[in-house]
Simulated assay, not measured.
Amino acid sequence: MEDPLTASLDLLRRLPPQQIAQNLALLTDTLLPDLADDLLSSVDQPLAVKVDSGSREYLVCDYNRDGDSYRSPWTNTYDPPLSDGTEPSPKLRSLEVSMNDAFDVYRDLYYEGGVSSVYLWDTDDGFAGVVLIKKTNDAGASTASWDSVHVFESLERGRQSHYKLTSTVMLYMTKPVAVSSEVAGAEGAGKASGEGEVALGGSMTRQHELSAPLDPTSAASLAQSHIVNIGKIVEDMELKMRNLLGEVYFSKTKDILSALRTQNGLDEQAKHRALQGELVGLLKGRKVAA
């Protein structure tokens, strides 16, 4: 019999990302309350946006949560206020501030909007952190959302640091479409029209490791080295995952749709087959003449 935790994680990976919160709540509150902590710590949920005391938007997730409070990367304070909340060491907090500024520029360049947040925490052999980016687009009745969660670990080894990165991208889009169909009834044939919805969504997780040089001549140069290295590995991973999502979602969807329903009518298909037959006949005639 399959382990309940493995089965639950496998199920959640196959459900729409925009419904992860509801499905996770159903599992943890009703079906598997004993696995609540394991599930909550293992499942990436769509990121939520809050506004701190400085009127700055930031992203909330399990990595900046302490109890029921969330820490802002800009003010370093918890909301609701928490007197003994977990915070990075002063040295790491300085790096966290610089990384938030750097990824805020990155977000503006690549996403032209959205919200980003970076959170760091101390580990025994170095430090770890998460880079979060969320972009939503509500264009009238259409809705789209992109959530990136990049969790990394840095292990310093002399003049080098080894980075381990786990990236998850959650993407979903919904668009209403007009639907019309032929109907037949007691009064005769006619047309019925209405509105349906096309929904496309899913998530993808990838891992990568990289060793990169550090400049330890000063605290500022060391911090800059980490920002450059982490920025590069996150940037490369996002580009790769974006291309993969394009292939998996859009190309595959187009192939399936083409296999199910052709855009050409019967007359067009008959002309195409007749042209194929004519070409085959001409080729056979050339071979006989030769």
Rank of each mutant, 00 (worst) to 15 (best):
Y119A: 02
Y119Q: 01
Y119K: 03
D122N: 15
D122H: 06
T123I: 09
D125I: 07
F127T: 08
A128T: 02
G129D: 02
L132H: 02
L132M: 08
K134R: 15
K135D: 04
T136V: 14
T136P: 01
D138A: 11
A141W: 00
A141F: 05
S142C: 08
S142K: 10
S142Q: 10
W146Y: 12
W146S: 03
D147L: 08
D147H: 13
V151I: 08
E153G: 08
S154Y: 04
G158H: 05
S161F: 00
S161Q: 03
K164S: 15
T166K: 12
T166Y: 00
T168Q: 09
M170V: 02
M170P: 00
Y172L: 10
Y172T: 13
T174V: 08
K175I: 04
K175Y: 01
K175E: 11
A178E: 12
A178G: 13
V179D: 10
S180A: 11
E182V: 12
G188A: 06
A192N: 11
A192C: 08
G194I: 00
E195S: 11
E197D: 13
V198K: 02
A199T: 15
S203F: 00
S203K: 02
E209L: 11
L214M: 13
A219L: 14
A220I: 13
S221P: 07
S221T: 15
A223R: 14
A223N: 13
A223K: 10
Q224F: 04
S225R: 12
S225V: 07
S225G: 15
I227N: 01
N229F: 06
I230C: 04
G231R: 01
I233F: 09
V234W: 00
V234H: 00
D236Q: 05
L239K: 15
R242T: 09
L245E: 13
L245D: 07
E247R: 13
Y249T: 09
S251I: 08
